[in-house]
């Protein structure tokens, strides 16, 4: 017989067991990797003070600002462009693939497969693969960001359509409206706020990622950082990082404002 008391006792034991298990996995893996958690943690303050001393921008690093900001703006533009194009592709594909607006279940499965394929290849891998065909150029970075964003956005947009648009869709279908009328008059207006919210999030994310991709593709702010870093001009590298942080925070504040207005 399951009484409340022994149900609760069992639950208690399960929780304890789970904690022990997680602890065990941690110990085992740090033993296998010869990773010493404690000395790692102790080293963190030292690492930060090293960073603070070496990466601190000086009066001298101000010289670098114009070229840093020029590249930074370029990188932000790249991120925005790739996200916007990705969003347009993703919304079309998501409409074709969602359970409520989509085609046959075969089409839905294919769309899901494609989305998951693009999403699950890491960005860095995309960049490396594309480097073969497109060499070190802005376009390589653009395409790498685009492909990964498409994967994420298709999945997100399909879920939004299924969650938010199915009821209004039904209502318009019942009036005798045709498929494209339903999409334009019900589905798109209904999901627009969530859509924009996701696009903004993706832009923020892609600005950060574009930096990383730039190191590989030799373009944009990532490239600038890489050069300063490798030529030991740490103060300029620090200035670059600071600029990136500022832009990312500014973008986040801006997109939160936009969200407040549209939601």
């Amino acid at each position: 017989m399951q009484t409340p008391v022994n149900y609760l006792a069992r639950k208690h034991w399960k929780q304890t067991g789970a904690i022990v298990l997680i602890g065990g996995i941690y110990l085992l893996s740090s033993w296998i990797l010869k990773f010493d958690g404690l000395s790692g943690i102790i080293a963190i303050p030292k690492a930060f003070s090293w960073l603070g001393v070496n990466f601190k921008p000086t009066a001298n690093s101000v010289h670098f600002l114009p070229s840093i900001w020029q590249k930074l703006i370029g990188t932000v533009m790249l991120a925005i462009a790739s996200t916007v194009v990705a969003s347009l592709i993703a919304i079309l594909v998501a409409i074709m693939g969602s359970k409520v607006t989509g085609g046959s279940s075969l089409v839905q499965t294919i769309v899901r497969g494609i989305a998951s394929f693009f999403r699950n290849i890491p960005l860095v891998a995309w960049a490396m693969i594309l480097l073969f065909s497109f060499k070190q150029s802005d376009f390589t970075g653009f395409l790498a960001l685009l492909l990964m964003s498409v994967g994420y956005l298709i999945r997100a947009f399909m879920e939004i359509i299924e969650d938010e648009a199915s009821e209004t869709m039904l209502a318009l279908k019942a009036t005798g409206a045709s498929y494209f009328q339903v999409i334009f008059q019900a589905v798109l207006p209904q999901i627009m706020p969530s859509l924009i919210s996701w696009i903004l999030y993706m832009i923020e994310n892609n600005v950060r990622d574009a930096t990383l991709v730039g190191i590989l593709t030799g373009t944009g702010i990532g490239f600038v950082f890489d050069i300063y870093y490798k030529s030991f001009r740490f103060d300029a590298a620090g200035m670059t990082v600071l600029s990136i942080i500022l832009v990312v925070i500014a973008l986040e504040v801006l997109s939160n404002q936009i969200r407040k207005v549209i939601l």
């Binding site: 039904l170 019942a174 005798g176």
Partner: peptide, 19 residues
Amino acid sequence: RGYRRQIGMVFQNYNLVER
């Protein structure tokens, strides 16, 4: 489609485009 436009439908959750 011709029949459907002669048949209105009203829903429990209204099913309007809220935006």
